[in-house]
Amino acid sequence: MVEEKKLLEKNILHLSNVHKAYGGNVVLEDIDFSLAKGEFCTMVGPSGHGKSTLLRLIIGQELPTSGEIYIEQERAMFSNPDRGVVYQQYSLFPHLSVMDNILLGMQLTHTPFEWRSNKSEYREKVRHYLDKVHLLEHEKKYPHELSGGMRQRVAILQTLIINPKIVLMDEPFGALDPGTREDMQLYLLELWDETKMTIIFITHDLEEAVFLGTRLLTVSRYYSDDRGSDQASHGSRVVTDLDLTKYMKQEISATDVKYTKVFRELIQKIRLEGFDPDYLQHIKDFNLKHADSFQTL
């Protein structure tokens, strides 16, 4: 394991000793996590074990009870444009057309005068992107007129167009049918390959997590420590932290990889370590193999 200070200096996002409790209910306990620029980090864990809470802490919708979150070594506070977010729902504003939804970020960050003089230029830029994802003909439609997949493509454009340092996604494809979902996974991988942006992607689908990510975290309450194995009293921790590129060096768009033996076995292992209530690892034995992994005990 590396020295924490070096990680903080090297990486774009750094969480040190982050706790979150609501009243007496501890949700997250001692989350240590450092993420390098350009990484596609997927995050899995049983439902109700604090994945979304962790996301809210990172984007600044809530502040941690204790511990620090740094973005490029600066203490991160409430939400700002450094951190973009794509939700499963509510990413798009119902009263704005596709075009206006995507333009919103730029409109908000410009003075009305600047906005008026640059508007047509930005519109052209958005049209160019919309054309690439076959949504140009829908630019005047409202979100309720779009299919789920279209909506998420618009939401991703809306987030990326203002170039956030990190993009967080909370089960963005969770409500899509399997076919659309696979299309969206490939679309996202292409975008990531093009822009080399830093992504944290929450999903409850292990297959999706292993397929998309370069790094995988499992956040789970199923572990044991010296206080015993009473899961009700302790919060979730990072129990698995893997460098997925070591397992699969796949070509982008090769969805066939999902049927290989390595892929299957890896999923079995992740499921055992994070999702099995009867398989409780001690905190000293967590599977934290990623080079950037660290643990403050």
Binding site: G60, Q61, S79, P81, R83, G105
Partner: peptide, 22 residues
């Protein structure tokens, strides 16, 4: 939903823009 306010902050909205613009 609170997500919508968070979302607009991440898109660069200032606090005073939330009531009238969003």
């Amino acid at each position: 939903p609170e997500e919508m306010i968070t979302k607009s902050l991440t898109l660069g909205a200032k606090q005073h823009q939330i009531p009238w613009k969003i």
